[in-house]
Amino acid sequence: MDAASVFTGFQFSDLRFLADAAGRTLLISVLAISIGTMLGCVFGWMLSVARIAGDATLGLLLDVFRSVPLIIQLILFYNFFPIIGFNVSPFTAGTIVLVFYTSALVAAVARGGIDAVPLNTRRAARSLGMTYWQDLRYIVWPIGLRAVLPSWAGVALGVLKDSALVSVLGYVELLRASQILITRTQEPFLILAVVGAFYFALSFPISRITARLERRWQYD
């Protein structure tokens, strides 16, 4: 192949480059998932408490994050910050957008979890003298968590994969790194396979484990 004389082939050091990028993918995903989940649980709780009023306000707002492509959200916010006088890095902008995106998805899940606890089970808890917060902590949280853990894992894995889109802002995460390498080495198939394997190796076991947990948790 004469292409090999122009471009340099895939080298061992490129693996290092990909590994660093994979680290950045993990970093931004873990940040988004952890902060987004906490925020989402609070939002979900607010939705379940405020019911109709909550749906009409917070619910509507969160719905926007779920009804507009993430890539558009990223570009929009990244270009919005300079308008209000902030210059933010692609990493910061990407993280902020991913956090809110995650929280919107988690809010729906969390609300479902709270609603999965029968009203009378909560009444039973309160009739034993538990306070509202004890009821939330000891009854609603564990029961709701089991009911929606698989959905939450689905959201988290989705965010892991969606974090690839932060590359449009120029943040060199895994997918962006692979593009750079492909341009240089002209070995797209190999590189895409390596990158695909990374995502797969992370995502597949987690989805399997939660599926198994879900079966085990059918209250046996």
Binding site: P118, N120, T121, R123, A124, A125, R126, S127, L128, G129, M130, Y138, I139, P142, I143, R146, Y219
Partner: peptide, 26 residues
Amino acid sequence: RRNIGMVFQQWNSFPHLTTLENVALS
């Protein structure tokens, strides 16, 4: 409410706790 026990038509046992834990929690 501590002074008034209540039992419902649907038993509302806490499904995530064993029998002993159900009773010991409150």
